[in-house]
């Protein structure tokens, strides 16, 4: 008697969301990215469709980072302060699927740059690269609400992802996304009920479920990864169980979380017992991402090109066919 693969019969599936628009679709992107669509748990293609592989977005900051550790400075130091060149480097040299542009400079404590300046940055990045964009505000609710009309308009019909809509601040971003044909990222602090609530609020405004990506807040390896992993796993199970308000693809912000960890930051001299800093830092980011992949994340926002490369290879190996026929 040969051992049989026990299969689950899932009722639901993750929504399929397309990011980016080509000229034919009214945008200017040379490539687009489609995520979601899974009708099973991560990579278990023997029992359900997994039409789209998870993708990696490289994060680009519009402010030159002042406190990045050496391995990151080596990778990006030459393009700090020039988001267009930075984005270009990620695409041309590191094969980014998407660019995640973070408009940090708009924050009142970090330069308070104007909506016009931010819109300009967005335009430059759009010109510099052909891949789709994720655009993230500065995190200050009031400022972001000032920002979105102009920034969203500057990227009109490019079908970017705009982040993020939260429980007590979702209206402006949703309205802008609808007006200009973008995707909305809804965010909740590691809480599946709040996540669902934000999705309901945003859809009630008229955003279609197929135009939403979820961000459930990320904790790095050793710093909360277990919470984020389980929230994502539960969310995927909810989608497979047929909960339409939790069926959106998921995004995880990995780079900034992983590189906050002491294990990634501390130079060798201060932590010789932990081995080579470069190796451990790369793996800290890559392993954080790897765990999220297996919890069901669809878009990973990463920092270091080597960590991203490792994870991309891993995605390919888990997406490949099994060597055994059933």
């Amino acid at each position: 008697m040969s051992f049989e693969m026990p299969k689950e019969k899932w009722r639901g599936a993750v929504n399929q969301v397309k990011i980016g628009a080509t000229a034919a679709e009214g945008g200017t992107r040379s490539s687009t990215v489609t995520v979601g669509g899974e009708a099973t748990l991560p990579f278990l293609d023997f029992e359900g469709d997994t039409p789209n592989r998870p993708v990696i977005a490289f994060e680009v900051l519009d402010l030159a980072p002042t406190d990045w550790p050496e391995p990151l400075v080596e990778a990006y130091g030459d393009v700090f302060g020039d988001p267009a060149a930075w984005a270009q480097k990620c695409v041309e040299q590191y094969e980014a699927d998407l660019i995640c542009l973070r408009l940090q400079s708009a924050h009142p404590d970090r330069g308070d740059s104007s909506p016009a300046q931010c819109a300009e940055t967005v335009k430059k990045v759009l010109q510099a690269v052909g891949v789709p964009l994720i655009i993230w505000g500065c995190g200050d609710n009031e400022k972001d609400n000032n920002l979105w009309p102009e920034v969203s308009q500057a990227a009109a019909r490019e079908r970017c992802c705009l982040g993020s809509a939260v429980q007590d601040n979702y209206k402006t971003i949703s309205a802008c996304a609808m007006a200009d044909g973008h995707v909305v990222i809804t965010e909740a602090p590691l809480d599946i009920n709040i996540q669902k609530q934000v999705n309901i609020l945003v859809t009630e405004m008229g955003v279609k479920p197929e135009d939403i990506i979820m961000y459930q807040v990320t904790g790095a390896l050793g710093y909360g990864v277990e919470y984020a992993y389980t929230i994502m796993e539960r969310t995927r199970l909810a989608a497979l169980g047929g909960d339409k308000m939790l069926s959106m693809p998921m995004l995880a912000i990995v780079g900034s979380e992983a590189w906050r960890a002491k294990e990634a930051r501390l130079p060798e001299e201060e932590s010789p017992q932990w081995g080579r800093r470069y190796d451990r830092a790369i793996l800290w980011e890559a392993m954080t991402a790897e765990l999220f992949l297996h919890a069901g994340t669809d878009i990973l926002v990463m920092w270091h090109p080597e960590a991203a490369r490792l994870v991309k290879e891993s995605v390919l190996s888990y997406s490949a066919a099994s060597t055994e026929s059933e």
Partner: peptide, 11 residues
């Protein structure tokens, strides 16, 4: 190599 083992024991 501790640089590779530390992430694993943490995971």
């Amino acid at each position: 190599d501790p640089a590779l083992v530390l992430p694993l024991v943490t995971a």
